[in-house]
Simulated assay, not measured.
Amino acid sequence: MGPKYRLELLVLALIGAMALAQKPSLSLEDKISNLQDMLYKRPIISMNMERWKNYVRSAPRNYSMIVMFTALSAGVNCPICKPAYDEFYILANSYRYGHMTDKAVYFGVVEFDDSPQIFQSMNLNTAPVIFHFPAKGREKKGDQMEFQRFGIDADAMAKFVAERTSIHVHVLRPPNYAAPVVIMLLVMLIMGLLYMRRNNLEFLYNRTFWGLACLTIVFCFMSGQMWNHIRGPPFFMTHPQTRETSFIHGSTQYQLVSETYIVLGLYVVITCGMVLVLDAPERKDNYRKMYAYVGLGLVTVFFSLLLSVFRMKYQGYPYQLLFN
């Protein structure tokens, strides 16, 4: 056998080996079957490079993929990734309960530490990001969810899914029994204190006491403390690209713990200013004008600050007072 025939045999052997090593592409029925099996086990499909190519990037496909790109490891400083992932999980779990047999949408997640190649293929250098990969054609400009505009809660994500896929997911949140238990313990504590002081209950007839109690409750609810208790947002947020720390979230659908404290403080100072203005005419001393001017100054300055916070949350709000 001459050298020419040996070379031809070697080339044929290499081609055969490559053909054997290359896995055949999955059919549409196989993809749907595998995705349904993974959906039964877990509402969110963890993506690696093989699954990414088979179920997201390759044809045939008659289903949409909603994929979150995130960085949940402790080594990556991303305080918003964990709450965003939790909300995404709630959305995917709600879809599994209500639309298991639709076979129209599947939810996936790409973790940066596990699959950095997928981040590179998408030219992503930030997280979290949610993309919609349509059943036909390439993704468009509107297929990326803007967290700064819509927020990161599950209801906003469900609205994004409905706009891109016409499938409306009713968000089902797990019941939280901590709040009723805390309220019950608080009521028992108050009843116990009243029983111990049953012979000295004059403070119950104190108008100042009840006024301060009512104001405290109003301030807590107006500043969003109940929202914090339900959603559990981070205290502040650090942007992955600029590394700047934000204490006020720039979206109407989300807020930070520090933001609620800022708003609560502004409400308190504005209320104190209004009390000074209303109390000034009742005073009989020489400080009437001072009370009125100080109260009016507090209301004007801190209401302007509150309006500035409102403008940061509602982009394009046209009105302002003293500050931008």
Rank of each mutant, 00 (worst) to 15 (best):
P3W: 04
R6D: 02
L7I: 10
L7Q: 15
G16L: 09
A19S: 06
L20S: 02
L20D: 01
L26P: 01
S27K: 07
D30N: 08
D30W: 04
Q36L: 12
I44K: 02
I45Q: 03
M47G: 01
W52E: 03
W52R: 02
N54A: 09
R57K: 09
R57N: 08
S58C: 06
R61G: 09
S64K: 05
T70H: 11
T70A: 15
S73M: 11
V76T: 13
V76L: 14
C78H: 04
K82E: 13
P83N: 11
Y85F: 04
F88S: 05
Y89D: 12
I90N: 07
I90Q: 07
L91S: 08
R96E: 06
Y97R: 15
H99G: 11
H99R: 14
T101W: 15
K103T: 10
V105Y: 01
V110C: 01
F112R: 10
D114E: 14
D114C: 14
Q117D: 15
F119T: 08
S121W: 13
N123A: 06
N123H: 07
L124M: 14
T126N: 09
V129D: 08
F131S: 09
H132N: 11
F133M: 06
A135F: 04
G137M: 01
G142P: 00
Q144V: 12
M145I: 03
R149P: 03
D155Q: 14
A156H: 00
K159W: 01
V161P: 00
A162L: 00
E163H: 00
R164H: 00
V169W: 00
H170C: 00
P174Y: 04
P180G: 05
V181N: 05
L186H: 13
L189V: 12
I190M: 14
L194V: 00
N199F: 09
L201P: 14
E202N: 13
L204C: 08
Y205C: 06
N206M: 05
T208I: 09
C214D: 12
L215C: 10
L215T: 07
L215W: 12
T216G: 10
F221S: 13
G224Y: 02
P233R: 06
H239M: 12
H239Y: 04
P240D: 03
Q241N: 09
R243V: 08
R243L: 10
T245A: 11
S251C: 02
Q253C: 13
Y254D: 04
Q255A: 14
L256N: 02
L256C: 05
V263Q: 10
L264V: 11
Y267P: 04
C272N: 03
C272K: 06
G273F: 01
L278A: 13
P281S: 00
P281L: 01
E282R: 15
E282D: 06
K284Y: 10
D285L: 11
Y293M: 15
Y293L: 11
V294C: 11
L296D: 02
L298E: 06
V301I: 15
S304I: 13
L307F: 05
F310W: 07
P318K: 04
L322K: 05
